[in-house]
Amino acid sequence: MWRSAVIADVTVQTHRTRTLTLAVDGWMTHRAGQHVDLRLTADDGYQAARSYSLASGPGEPPQVTVDRLPDGEVSPYLVDIAAPGDALELRGPVGGYFVWSPQNSPQPPVLLIAGGSGVVPLHTMLRARLHAGDDTPMRLLYSARSWDDVIYRDELRQASSVSGVTVEFTLTRDIPPGWSGHTGRLDAAMLTELSWPATDRPDVFVCGPTRFVEAIADTLVDLGHDPAAVRTERFGG
């Protein structure tokens, strides 16, 4: 069922991403990792719809963080044109596998591995943990081209000061002067250094472009992680 939504707020995240907060009548709640479909309608009735991961934590109004794809049909509109007060339609929340929820009982540690805008649903899982005051150990490894491409910079840096939470960045292309984080691709050596060993049996969530996700998932399996504990979400051809 499509529901009418109005853009309530727009936050610039990076030079190519924005977070839209949506006002939706009857929105109940959602789980971190779920997505919504957004549908745009032109004057003449032409429609286009795409799926976006939810960027807000459970209990918050729905937010999406949209990355402008160079050849996109919907994302350039959402990033460059859509403004508060504009209307669109929404369906969801959807998805019951690439999700994580805080529980009032011990859970395995959670390893979140993001490539580019794949950080969106993983950041939502981190946010869900923080808001719930959950103490599940959580570690986010975030690979981005440059510091300017890192989404949720301030939020993630604050999160990394919380006990039990670690956020590690690696930059693959442009390294700013004085950068003290990691550089280069997340390979087996970096994964071994930065993540829990397979014997700790973490729940792993990997999200990013197909090439990134394929490489990370293969490496994790090579490092002994149970394939069934590695959940993936991919985008792009």
Partner: peptide
């Protein structure tokens, strides 16, 4: 359906 302003 809801028309989205400026969407072509």
């Amino acid at each position: 359906a809801t028309v989205s302003r400026g969407f072509g």
